[in-house]
Simulated scan of single mutants.
Amino acid sequence: MRLSFYQFLMTERNPDSADEIAQFANNAALDQIFPKQSQDFDVISKYLEENARYLPSMTIFDAAWQRYLAKMT
């Protein structure tokens, strides 16, 4: 079974890390309306662009998405 992007992202959490993806994951864990079941790039990207003030740059999401795709193959 393929993980949702959120489920994958939760494996990247690390409160002691300065890594941008880890910080993204830490903040997404606190986001109660994050699309937690989605595996769709466009759905998640649109949500983040419109709602995630905690994400300083969409390039961080893009890097996390590439890591997600690599892990799911």
Results as ranks from 00 to 15, higher is better:
R53H: 14
T59C: 13
Y47K: 00
K46M: 01
D42R: 12
T11Y: 04
T11Q: 08
D16A: 01
I60C: 09
F41G: 05
S45T: 07
F34Q: 03
E50I: 08
M58R: 11
A63P: 10
R67D: 11
N14M: 04
N27M: 11
K71M: 10
N51V: 08
N51S: 13
M72N: 15
S45C: 10
Q39E: 15
M1A: 05
E20N: 07
M10I: 07
A29I: 07
N26W: 02
R13K: 12
W65S: 00
L48Y: 05
D16S: 05
W65K: 01
A25D: 01
L55N: 05
A22V: 02
I33T: 15
Y6I: 03
K71E: 09
W65H: 03
A29S: 14
Q37H: 12
I60V: 15
N27A: 12
A28R: 05
A63T: 12
A63M: 14
K36E: 03
Q66C: 10
R53K: 14
Q32K: 15
L30E: 13
A64V: 01
R53I: 09
F5P: 00
I44A: 06
D16H: 03
R2T: 15
L55Q: 04
A18L: 00
L30I: 09
M58P: 08
Q32L: 15
A63S: 14
A29T: 07
E50S: 15
M10C: 08
L48G: 04
D19A: 06
S45K: 11
F61A: 06
L30W: 11
Q23A: 07
N51L: 10
Q32T: 15
V43Q: 14
L48D: 01
D19V: 02
N27T: 01
D42E: 14
I60G: 02
L9R: 05
S45I: 04
D62T: 09
A22K: 06
S38L: 10
D16F: 00
P35N: 05
K46D: 06
Q39R: 15
S17Y: 00
S17D: 03
I44K: 07
R2M: 14
N51T: 11
K71D: 07
E49W: 08
T59A: 14
Q7M: 05
A64R: 01
S45A: 13
M10Y: 04
L69P: 14
F34E: 02
E20W: 02
A22C: 11
P35V: 02
F41K: 00
L48S: 01
L69D: 13
N26D: 07
A70V: 08
I33F: 14
L3I: 03
E49T: 04
F24C: 02
S38M: 12
A18V: 03
M10T: 07
P56S: 11
Q23E: 10
Y68S: 01
A52H: 06
K71F: 09
L55G: 02
F8L: 01
R2H: 14
T59G: 10
M58I: 08
V43F: 11
N14W: 01
E12N: 08
Q32D: 13
K71A: 11
E50G: 13
L48N: 00
E20L: 04
S45R: 09
Q66R: 14
A29G: 13
I21T: 04
Q23L: 13
Y54C: 10
D62R: 12
A63Q: 15
S17Q: 01
T73W: 12
M10E: 09
N26V: 03
F34S: 08
A18I: 00
Q37A: 12
